[in-house]
Amino acid sequence: MTDGVPATLALPEWPALLGIAAWSGTGKTTLLEQLLPALQQRGLRVAVIKHAHHDFDVDQPGKDSHRLRQAGAAPMLVASRARIAMMLETPDREEADLAQLIEMVRPQAPDLILVEGFKAWPLPKLELYRSELGQSARAAVDPWVKAVAAKGDWQPPAGVECLNLDDLDALTAWVAAWPARWPSERGPRVEEGETR
């Protein structure tokens, strides 16, 4: 395990997982806002697991749930007719445990779990890339990148599909097809001459 990221991750047979990896400022959230309703229109039930790099709190100080969580409730679950929220303190962890988060989402029976922000984790990924940001594409060094949605002049490494970051219809079609591809795509990209 390096920096809280395991070398391997037991990927479930179902549901399909797809990481959305990109440098900050590339437009991950904006793209997801557009993709999610388009995928829903195609009949897919999609869950999202998002990593936050800082201390965050979705609860409000002074509210009963915040007070009870501060008093030691672990987890603190708040439910209404409209939504459910669960807060769980994890002070002893260096990093969020993606495997545990996947297991928390699986009972909801999504067709696909999009994982945003866990870019160093060993899971299949769609990388978003903008050459104008001046960063290098992770696809060159990350064998888990299956496709790159790029804007600007860039050529993918062998075995990596290239998509147009500005073509929402093509991106939607590629992501919508991912659950069917999942059984054969659960491992890292293999270079010619290598064996898996």
Rank of each mutant, 00 (worst) to 15 (best):
W182V: 01
L88I: 05
P122F: 04
D92W: 12
S184G: 04
A120K: 13
A170K: 06
T2C: 09
P91D: 13
P124D: 02
A52Y: 01
R106V: 05
P110W: 03
V105M: 11
P156F: 14
A147P: 03
T90R: 08
G187M: 15
A147D: 14
H54S: 10
P157K: 10
G117C: 15
D153W: 07
A79T: 00
Q40Y: 00
L11Y: 09
D169T: 12
A16M: 13
Q135E: 10
R106A: 12
A120S: 08
T26P: 03
G27K: 01
R42W: 03
L165C: 12
A180V: 06
A21T: 00
A109M: 12
P15F: 10
P12H: 02
R83Y: 09
G134L: 03
H66G: 08
K50T: 10
I102V: 15
W14Y: 04
P143S: 11
A38R: 09
N164W: 08
P37M: 03
A137T: 07
W154T: 09
A73W: 00
A140I: 06
P122A: 08
D3H: 11
L88H: 07
Q70M: 09
L98S: 05
M86V: 05
G193M: 04
N164C: 15
L77V: 15
H53Y: 07
V105D: 06
D59H: 13
R196G: 05
A73Y: 07
M87P: 10
A10G: 04
E185Y: 06
D111I: 01
A22Q: 10
G62W: 07
V148M: 06
K151F: 01
K28G: 06
K146Q: 15
G43W: 00
A109F: 01
A147F: 03
Q40C: 02
D55N: 06
L9E: 11
M104A: 07
K63S: 14
K119F: 12
K151Y: 00
F56A: 12
A99D: 14
I113A: 00
E13S: 14
G187Q: 15
L32H: 02
P12R: 02
T172K: 02
E116F: 14
R138A: 03
D97S: 02
V48T: 13
A137W: 08
L31V: 00
R45Y: 07
R138H: 08
M104S: 04
R67E: 01
D92F: 02
L171G: 05
A149I: 04
A82D: 04
K63H: 02
D169G: 12
A79I: 11
V160D: 10
M76W: 01
V190S: 12
A85L: 05
K125Q: 07
D169V: 02
K63C: 05
E13R: 05
G27P: 06
